[in-house]
Amino acid sequence: MVQGLLHSAGEPFSMSNAVFAIIRGHRRALDVTSVVQGKTRFFSVMMLTWGLVADIDIESEKFRWMGSARIDFYSLLRAVNLRRYNGRILFVPAPGYEGFGDPVEQTISCKSNGATNAAEGDIPDVCNNETCTYSGPSTDDADLEWRSLKGPFVNVWISNIAFASEGVMIAPQAQFADGYLDAAIIKDCPWSVALGLLLRMKDGSYIESPYVEYFKVKALRIEPGLRVGSSTIGGIIDSDGEVLARGDRSQTKEEPEHLMAYGPPIQLMVDQGLATIFSPR
C-alpha cells in the first residue's frame, strides 16, 4: 500500500517519505471490497489471491528464518513444481473490458444494495427471499452482465492496489478509488513460463504475456476447484496476507478455523471511495 501511494506521487519508497506523508496530512479516497461467502462477510482494501502467489505467501512461512529471501527461494520452488487449479471465475467487467471471458446466462435476480445476478445454475449464497445481506453500493440488476473464465488456473490475483510489495507491481493500471478491482489471471502454462512471469512482476510487464488475462471488474465471484491431478487437495485463498480458506485439509484441531470454507463460491464487490487514507499529495 505504501509503495503504491509513494509511486503515484513520484516519490521513492522509504520509511521517511511514508512518515512525512502522514505528517503532511493529505488524504485520498480508497475503495473497499466486501468479500462474501454465505452469511460470512469481511472487508479488504488490498488484494485477494488464489493459486501460485497465495501458496508462496503462506507456505513460505516455514522458511521465515531465511528473512526476505524466503519469498525468492519458495517462488523458485513452486514455479519448478508448478501447481494448477481447476475452477471458474465469474465477473461483471468494467466498461471497456466486455470482451474478456465468455458470456453467462443470468437466470435469477438477487436485488439489493450491491447485489448481483446469479449465473446459470447458481443461486447466490448471500440471497434470502430475493433480499441480499450485502449492503454495498446500489447497482441496477439490468446493468449487470456476467462473464466467465474457466480453469485450470496457475494464479488468480484480484487487486485494489498497484503494488503487492516494494518490488512487485501486480496491477499496473490499478487506481485507489476508481470503483473497480483489477484482475490478473495466469492461465495454464509451462513452469518455465510461470517462472518468467514471476520475474517480470517487478515492473508489471508480466500482464503483457499471452498467458495472462488482465482486466477490471465491478464484481467477481470465485468458484475454486481442486488441484489438477488430485481428487482431495485444493489450494489456499488469502486476502491482505491472511488465509481465508485452505483446501488441503491440513488444518489441525489446534489451529483456528479459517474465516471461509474452501469450495463454495466467494463473491467480491466494491464500495467506491468508502475509506480514507493518508497520501503524499
Rank of each mutant, 00 (worst) to 15 (best):
N117F: 09
A118S: 14
A119H: 12
I123L: 11
P124V: 08
P124Y: 02
C127L: 09
C127P: 02
P137I: 02
D140Q: 12
D143S: 15
L144Y: 01
E145R: 15
E145Q: 15
E145T: 12
E145P: 00
W146F: 13
R147G: 01
R147M: 03
L149V: 13
K150A: 12
K150I: 06
G151R: 10
F153V: 07
F153W: 06
N155M: 02
W157Q: 11
S159A: 15
S159L: 09
N160C: 04
N160E: 04
I161V: 15
F163S: 09
A164L: 15
S165V: 04
E166Y: 03
G167T: 13
V168D: 09
I170N: 10
P172A: 02
Q173D: 15
A174T: 04
F176N: 14
F176P: 05
A177Q: 06
A177V: 00
D178L: 01
G179E: 07
D182W: 00
A183G: 03
A183E: 00
A184K: 05
K187T: 07
C189A: 12
V193A: 06
A194C: 13
L199S: 10
R200G: 01
K202T: 15
K202M: 08
G204P: 01
S205G: 03
S205L: 02
Y206M: 02
Y206G: 01
I207Y: 00
E208D: 14
S209R: 04
P210T: 08
P210N: 10
P210I: 05
Y211P: 03
Y211H: 14
E213N: 11
F215A: 11
K216M: 02
K218C: 03
K218H: 06
R221Y: 00
I222A: 03
E223K: 07
P224W: 01
G225E: 07
V228K: 12
G229C: 07
G229Y: 08
S230I: 05
S230G: 06
T232R: 14
I233L: 13
G235N: 10
I236M: 09
I237D: 03
I237E: 02
